[in-house]
Amino acid sequence: MTSLMDHQARETVGYSFSESTAGVKQHGFYPYTDNGGSTLGITGSDFAILAGDTRSTSGYNINSRMVPKVFKIGGDDETGEGATIVLSVVGFAADGNALKERLDTVVKMYKYQHGKPMSVSACAQRLSTILYQKRFFPYYVHAILAGLDEEGKGALYSYDPVGSYEREQCRAAGAAASLIMPFLDNQVNFKNQYIPGSGEGHALAAKKPEPLPLETVKGLVRDAFTSAVERHIEVGDNLQMVIITKDGIEEVYHPLKKD
């Protein structure tokens, strides 16, 4: 019996090799990963644009050059035909897909139950709720929702991973957000731009932001992404641009650098 009692004594075993004194060895499971990429949304008076690159990464590996980040929400079939709302997700792609599918289901159910399509503002509030429901195990994504509001104006809502949201004129998200966002401040909201000759000192008048025409916005989106591709390794391959107007949703792809 004494030999059994010895178990409690915790003698050190005399191995020839050194023992690690650390506690339990464990290979922790981390349920998130970052799949890189960047997204961007800009609105105009009668349209909204959501764009994203199509590169998927894990670490320094490129998983695929064609994984879209912008999705049509509440369409009638698999292709998203008939949808009026668009969602972009960037961050952890598996969470992004799960979030997209939940919102898609919700918007479809709304249409079946109420016999009318869900408004963007209602969808925006619902998305916030979905994100907040997972407050303590969040969807690790930055979401941007776009569509046309009740007056037909472009509407854009941006979210943090736990559901804080805000309607904005423009927003960049993802890996290259810090590169793109100040460029957008300057070119879309005319931040730091003044009207020449309007006065000295405090009398100098700031240039007022006004809704930009569609072609200008398309140009800005492409410029923003070609710039981001140049300086961020996780951004590249293709640019997916989704344009929402009263006539429906148009989706176009442009090549970006593949290095």
């Binding site: 178990h7 075993v13 005399g14 339990v24 464990q26 290979h27 922790g28 499971f29």
Partner: peptide
């Protein structure tokens, strides 16, 4: 045998904390 090799080191057996065998 304990008298030859010393007692078994029970620190290899985790008795507290979360279940970890599924995480590697």
């Amino acid at each position: 045998r304990n008298d030859v090799y010393g007692a078994y080191d029970p620190s290899y057996l985790q008795s507290t904390g979360p279940k970890t065998h599924t995480t590697s």
